[in-house]
Nucleic acid binder design. Structure first.
Lengths: 351, 351
DNA sequence: ACTTGTCTGTGTATCGTTACACATGCTGTG
DNA sequence: CACAGCATGTGTAACGATACACAGACAAGT
């Protein structure tokens, strides 16, 4: 795998000797090329190439300069889930974009759910952290705060030392749920996991406060607001909790509540992926959308638009970018401006 | 954003002083806790907490130990594309999994397409590289080789110093294309980009050698093999080249060749995303699958299974894991075993 | 009592680079 | 012609941690 594992990495001093210049000249050749005359620069580059010098050692550079040259991203409980979650991916693209613009790397801190995760955070060679939405009791959050590095949380939880980037989930949930729940008789909420245990199942009148993921909690509260505003009682609402944000998961869970006389006539899903999975299951079960049941999603992805899904539009990518900018200390203006969202009405709720 | 930007990071020496022990004792407390008695350990930990010491400086540690504690991933031309490509994401999940198992971070090297990308590679604080499929002429590849660090390429291009992890794309393409092209009269290939320029468009009899992405090239060759084996001439085959691997892109490009008397009766797509995008466009155009046109995808994603799409199954996640293992020098056995794939026949080609 | 071994704590040198202050030579200007 | 000002090259001292070798204390075995 290696190129030549036997030969040790040459150092700047060796290059300097080979090029008959001082170490500093070599250093400047890499760090501030303008500081060195063109002729000397060429000689140094030539010597470096001859010795196979790959450029300044990043560790040494980082130690001396005091900057790591990379932004850390903490992706919730298990990396596996994170990369399979399209929302997380969109968010990451936004973070990555800003990193690239600053010439920074993007280091994914490997989280597995083990207690050693906090060590990983402390050991990460980064200049700041972006924390992807996680549960209130996730020990990774205090670990991030303990590094003393600039950090921003997306989605939740709140932490004294870190700004949070998120939309007003409760309000948005209220809006989208109102659209479909006002006239519903057998409503179902297709929910994100409540906590890091990620138990799946269907329950009636679930107390939103049980959810330790802030996003899940706030959206449940919003739904409850809407249902009660329409004159309903919360225990009438079934909450189907998915273990992960994927269409497959939703489709499989849907079989548990889609059949029989109790089949819902309205489903509010917490993501477009979940909504689309449900719609797939509904079609298989012979139910028509919106004829038999109205459906709403969340995020306004391309697929949602293609499927005519009513949804809450929010730009996760922009939110990722914003998190990165905040960590990097950019954007002094409108730092406190709320993140935008809007309700997009489509056929899936057209009665 | 920061916790307290004013106060400088405490050093190990300060902690040692506060705990009234030597610096080495503090070092051991973090690096080899068993080497230190429980009492002393507690004293050190306490002092560290009191001073707000976040643990050993990663840069210094990396310099001294000679390991960076992170694996680098180079994600092709532009980060943006990479994170939006579901295949790349699946692959990443595999890499991440192995990293997590080794307690390593995963550093995404920010690529923008600018010449400075090669500097980014040289500057990355990593112990090895995994290169996601890119074009033969991508300067990033020699830059990776020049670091002298262990490196593995996924998909392509080939490079003397790096093993490559990929399936036999030509053979697989031959197999899937044979399934549908044997009886086709107006075949279309829905292709990945040919090169980093990512020009989109529809062309007849495109020479596979034009493609500098190895994967694209090999698959085109496989399709040609199949078509010619069925007695056809290559120029009869239209190749629709997408700029990116997304359903939306495919659907939009499909409008250019789906209408009129020339509408294809068979489409072989290079990914399930492209195939599904095309099917969406076909449905909108009033064409039935497989009645009016047969369609095949590639990758066997959940969505492909749900849509009844004939496809080539390959496990990108496992390939990501494998790349990481190779870089880390794991797995001495079956290192040269070819990566598996298989043809999955479903309704989209059932005539 | 003496050797042997284990456990725990301690200096010192060093990892490879860059910030900083300084030295030199050359150009242009009053 | 002297002197400022710029361009270019050079030592030295950190940056913060860890590998290594060694020292003392104590227990156990002979």
């Amino acid at each position: 795998m290696a190129q030549d594992p036997s030969r040790p990495r040459p150092t700047m001093a060796e290059v300097a000797r080979a090029a008959k210049v001082s170490v500093m000249t070599v250093s400047y050749t890499y760090a501030q090329p303008d500081r060195v005359s063109e002729r000397t620069r060429a000689r140094v580059r030539e010597a470096a190439a001859r010795l196979g010098y790959p450029g300044p050692h990043p560790g040494a550079r980082s130690l001396r300069r005091g900057r790591a040259g990379s932004l850390g991203v903490v992706l919730g409980e298990h990396l596996t889930y994170a990369f399979e979650d399209p929302q997380a991916t969109r968010f990451l693209a936004g973070v990555a974009e800003v990193c690239a613009g600053h010439g920074l790397g993007l280091t994914i801190v490997p989280i597995t759910g083990a207690p050693s995760d906090t060590d990983r955070v402390a050991e990460a060679a980064v200049d700041g952290f972006v924390v992807w939405t996680t549960s209130d009791d996730d020990p990774v959050v205090p670990a991030v705060a303990a590094t003393g590095l600039p950090a921003v949380v997306h989605g939740g939880p709140h932490h004294r030392d870190m700004p949070i980037v998120a939309i007003d989930d409760r309000k948005a949930a209220r809006a989208v749920a109102a659209e479909v729940f006002a006239s519903a008789r057998r409503p179902v909420v297709l929910s994100f996991p409540l906590d890091r245990a990620r138990a799946r199942g269907v329950r009636n009148g679930l107390d939103p406060a049980e959810a330790t993921f802030r996003v899940t909690r706030e959206r449940l509260r919003g739904v409850r607001d809407a249902w009660e505003a329409a004159g309903g009682r919360w225990p009438q609402v079934r909450v189907a909790v998915c273990a992960r944000n994927s269409a497959g998961e939703a489709a499989s869970l849907a079989t548990e509540f889609l059949a029989g006389p109790d089949a819902p006539d309205a489903v509010m899903a917490m993501s477009d992926e979940l909504a689309l999975g449900l719609m797939r299951a509904a079609t298989r079960a012979g139910l028509a959308v919106p004829g038999d049941l109205a459906v709403t999603g969340w995020d306004d992805t391309d697929a949602a638009a293609a499927a005519g899904l009513t949804t809450v539009a929010q730009n996760l990518r922009a939110q990722g970018a914003r998190c990165a900018q905040l960590v990097l200390g950019e954007e002094a203006t409108d730092e406190t401006a709320p993140i935008e969202w809007r309700l997009v009405l489509r056929d899936s709720t057209r009665r």
